[in-house]
Amino acid sequence: MSDIRLERSFGVSPERLFAAVTSQADLLQWWGPEGLHVPEHALDLSQTGPWYSVMVNEEGQRFKVSGQVTSIDPPKSVGFTWAWHDDEDTRGPESHVTFSIVAMEEGARLIVDHRALGDDEVAQNHEMGWGSSLNKLETLIK
């Protein structure tokens, strides 16, 4: 199983960064790689329970992912399961994501840990996707 870990620093308080990565209003602005939008969702990482999102690219391709928010510790972390759905809406292999927020002298650092991703190719694709999504997050909270 492959894991990925990405880190980004932001010039905002841990509380603001936590809100940006958990509240629905902020999530919908940065969730998914650049060029995708989220027209369908039950996306709220601020409480435990089920979530899902459908991301759509410029060509109209749909990408559904779902899971369960498993833990929440404001403003330090949120954890959730993650699984892509196929074209018949069957849920695939499950992995786990943790967003951890660490206070820094000049703001806060977000650590994205995505574990149990399967093979290296799957991990590389997720690393690119999360990196692109974090670019959108940076734009949102500058």
Results as ranks from 00 to 15, higher is better:
23 S>M: 11
23 S>D: 14
25 A>L: 12
26 D>R: 07
27 L>T: 12
27 L>E: 12
28 L>I: 13
28 L>S: 04
29 Q>I: 08
30 W>C: 09
31 W>A: 10
31 W>F: 15
31 W>Q: 10
31 W>D: 14
31 W>R: 04
32 G>S: 06
34 E>M: 04
35 G>L: 15
37 H>N: 13
38 V>A: 10
38 V>F: 01
43 L>E: 14
44 D>G: 07
45 L>Y: 12
46 S>W: 03
47 Q>R: 15
49 G>S: 06
52 Y>H: 14
52 Y>D: 04
53 S>H: 10
54 V>A: 05
56 V>W: 05
56 V>N: 09
57 N>V: 09
58 E>W: 12
60 G>L: 14
61 Q>A: 06
61 Q>K: 07
63 F>Q: 00
64 K>R: 08
64 K>Y: 08
64 K>V: 02
65 V>M: 05
66 S>P: 00
66 S>M: 08
66 S>F: 09
66 S>C: 11
67 G>Y: 14
69 V>T: 12
70 T>D: 06
71 S>I: 00
71 S>D: 03
71 S>R: 02
71 S>A: 09
72 I>V: 13
72 I>W: 02
73 D>L: 14
73 D>V: 13
73 D>S: 13
73 D>Y: 05
75 P>E: 03
75 P>T: 07
76 K>P: 01
76 K>G: 06
76 K>L: 07
76 K>E: 10
77 S>Y: 05
77 S>G: 02
77 S>H: 11
78 V>L: 02
78 V>D: 09
79 G>Y: 02
82 W>I: 05
82 W>C: 08
82 W>F: 14
83 A>F: 09
83 A>Y: 10
84 W>G: 08
85 H>D: 04
86 D>Y: 14
87 D>W: 02
87 D>M: 05
87 D>E: 10
87 D>P: 00
88 E>D: 11
89 D>S: 05
89 D>A: 00
90 T>G: 00
90 T>F: 14
91 R>N: 04
92 G>E: 01
93 P>R: 01
95 S>K: 02
96 H>L: 04
97 V>G: 05
98 T>P: 02
98 T>R: 06
98 T>A: 05
100 S>V: 01
100 S>A: 14
103 A>D: 12
103 A>E: 15
104 M>A: 13
104 M>V: 08
105 E>I: 00
106 E>H: 09
106 E>G: 06
107 G>W: 05
107 G>K: 02
107 G>M: 07
108 A>V: 01
110 L>P: 12
110 L>Y: 10
111 I>A: 05
111 I>V: 15
